[in-house]
Amino acid sequence: MSIEESAETPPVTRQHRPRWLETLTLLARNPLAIAAVVVLAGLVFAALLAESIVPRDDIFTPDIANRLQAPSGEHWFGTDELGRDVFARVLAGAEVSLRVGAVAVGISLTAGVVVGLLAGYFGRWVDDTLMRVMDVLFAFPALLMAIAVLAILGAGSTNAMIAIGIVYTPIFARITRASVLSVREEVYVRAARSAGAGNVRIIVRHVLPNVTAPIIVQTSISLAFAILSEAALSFVGLGTQPPDPSWGRMLSEGRGFIEQAWWMAVFPGAAIFVTVLAFNVLGDALRDVLDPRQRSAMKGVGA
């Protein structure tokens, strides 16, 4: 920041600030985004510390005497059909749901971005081959595809992560490829080649950093979808296995008791709702901040 304007240096208009810092500052001006970040941070906190906040017994050990208790001072979210504390299980379920979301999106993000970069950059037969494979994956309804993958791999939360990861790969591949198609025509890519840069350097150092914006937004949206997918897979019994708590599993079990014990389904459902909403709000806010036109407008208002 301490750059002196000397005689031979014409004035430079703006103060130098790293781009990411500017992005964060703009993001922090959006109260909804802050709320979303707070909610998500709380969830991550709960997921990591669930077993130290609530006793392990509350999560796993049946207590038939206290089954189907309505919410009270002792059991905030009531108890389920085996007398386990629903609040404790929702907290513990956060860990499963968020982990499945993060790992599944991590898989599809990595695979999709690599496929999209290669297809978009090299074009021709590389593009045709990779994208036709993606089209085949994309042609199946997402959940049917995940169920088919789980039928091959077997049920379980690890396999559910892999299945969801595979299902969401084509979305990342398509979004990445579309951006790469425009970036690879940029003059600075030709400039890098004229300086002797090879394909690997051009892809990693020039193309990838310039296609990140839509990928970041898609990531936050996909996290929400992945949690919903895990809930759906667990709901049909292919995801998390009992007695492990997962929001989707709890929702599906609670369905049977909806008339006697509404709290068994409502609280895990609400947890899914809040998490998905937070990811979507954050995704929308990120999209606005990363769009150059929106960005200038926001800066104009704030400055």
């Binding site: 003059v187 030709r190 004229s194 002797g196």
Partner: peptide, 26 residues
């Protein structure tokens, strides 16, 4: 071949028309 050509690129260079487009914004 590409490898030799890249090495030769040290001895050649290009100055582009639009100096904004030819510099990577990142």
């Amino acid at each position: 071949p590409a490898r030799e050509l890249r090495a030769l690129r040290r001895r050649t260079a290009m100055v582009f028309q639009d100096p904004f487009a030819s510099l990577d914004p990142r």
